[in-house]
Nucleic acid binder design. Sequence first.
DNA 1: GCCAACGTTGGC
DNA 2: GCCAACGTTGGC
Length: 138
Amino acid sequence: MKTQLWLVKQEPESYAWEAFVRDGRATWDGVRNYQARNHLKAMARGDRVLFYATGDSKSVMGIAAVARAAFPDPTAEEPGWVAVELRPLEPLPHPVTLARIKADPSLRQTALVRHSRLSVMPLAEAEFARIVELGREP
DNA sequence: GCCAACGTTGGC
DNA sequence: GCCAACGTTGGC
């Protein structure tokens, strides 16, 4: 199967990119939205994932990879919710702000822009590549 | 099954 | 702090 590309959101106050890098691996649990859950379920080991920080930072911070595909969310009291494990791959030298993403014509269709409340979303190959490219240039 | 009320997310 | 955009809940 073709590798898929994703973006996950995280509040930096609860789990910052720096903490993720320090930990070297993280269980992505606690997702309680069906659409986001379905995206988690579709993740395969090795898929690339952009890490987006909400709140004050509102920026894509770096690239991660799926280390373990979906398994039952240990924090869920009801069955049916899943978690994945992610590991950080590399930071983006210049975190890509939401403003920059919104200003880029090739990124206007991303779920990040169009569905601002979704916390786990797929990205098209060109979208993923463009964000990474922006992250490498000031 | 509809829809009003309510709660949450997250940008501004 | 506000509010738009949604998702969820519960009464009917």
